[in-house]
Nucleic acid binder design. Structure first.
Length: 274
DNA sequence: ATATTCCCCTGGAAGC
DNA sequence: TGCTTCCAGGGGAATA
């Protein structure tokens, strides 16, 4: 569910709502992708002040006042809310932090593909195994057309699969992979090492523009994704090919094709993506 | 080493 | 009204 724009949106909201808050208690109601030890999590969090949240790839880092923190991942269906604390867990609420100011920060996750890690150093150092081997940020300086070509040149698997690989490039997920390739006019089936530098320039720009536009729209809500306040992502109205099997391509009116690649649905126009 | 396939889990939509 | 099948914004382990 959440790709870079969704995680960015949620991180910004958490910052506004929870920066400076102090944690009093923690409740664990169910596992996520990893099993959460309630006693350990409570020991790690109790009494801590939350300084800030920041995003790295599709992870959210929470930095505590003692320079330790949390690393959170939303998986496919993770979401948060912050409400007055009534002490009652809601449906699919897996973890809850109660705050000294009387509020309750809830972590929901229907499918339990999310993850939560405690870290004993500042999570922004990116020393944790979950953060250590990630590729560059697509909106950052290290992501250049040249870099894109260098990594694609090392593989002959389809470019769509490659831009989903978080070791090569972070933040792009299944929706924005299809959308960026459509915008770039590049077929998702093209072997990575077949892309010219000119292709990479086009794709690089398309990835950046799509992600930036989606951040401005608060992300994409297909079904479960919600911002912390419950609002939906409006970029869904700007999707050109994702989920539009059989509908006319916005550019040439050829029916959009769906093809499963590496187990994930891929949408593209067989006419104008070469 | 690299590239697909399977699997984790729950629920909604579509098909019969 | 059911019951079954398919599908879903991710990613890690097992398998070729």
């Amino acid at each position: 569910m959440p790709e870079l724009p969704e995680v960015e949106t949620i991180t910004n909201s958490l910052n506004e709502l929870l920066s400076g808050a102090e944690i009093s208690e923690v409740h664990v109601y169910d596992r996520l992708r990893n099993v959460i030890d309630e006693a350990e999590l409570r020991r790690h969090c109790a009494g801590q002040k939350i300084c800030r949240f920041s995003r790295r790839a599709k992870f959210i880092r929470a930095v505590f006042g003692n320079a330790t923190g949390l690393i959170l991942h939303l998986g496919m269906t993770g979401s948060f809310s912050v409400t007055p604390d009534d002490g009652i867990p809601q449906r699919h609420e897996r973890i809850a932090w109660t705050l000294r100011d009387g509020r309750r920060w809830r972590f929901f996750d229907i499918r339990k593909f999310g993850a939560l890690f405690c870290t004993d150093h500042n999570p922004e150092l990116d020393l944790h195994p979950a953060l250590r081997d990630l590729g560059p940020e697509p909106l950052g300086d290290k992501f250049t057309p040249k870099y894109l070509q260098q990594i694609l040149a090392k593989h002959n698997s389809p470019v769509k699969n490659l831009i989903l690989d978080q070791h090569l490039l972070v933040g792009v997920g299944n929706i924005y992979a299809s959308e960026a390739l459509f915008k770039a006019g590049i077929s998702p089936l093209r072997p990575g090492d077949s892309l010219s530098l000119a292709d990479c320039r086009t794709l690089h720009q398309a990835i950046r523009e799509i992600l930036a536009a989606s951040i401005r729209a608060g992300g994409t809500t297909i079904s479960d994704y919600r911002d912390v306040d419950g609002s939906r992502g409006k970029f869904v109205n700007q999707l050109q090919v994702y989920g539009r099997t059989g509908e006319p391509c916005p550019k040439c009116h050829t029916p959009v094709v769906r093809k499963v690649m590496a187990g994930r649905s891929t949408f593209y126009c067989p006419n104008c993506q070469k």
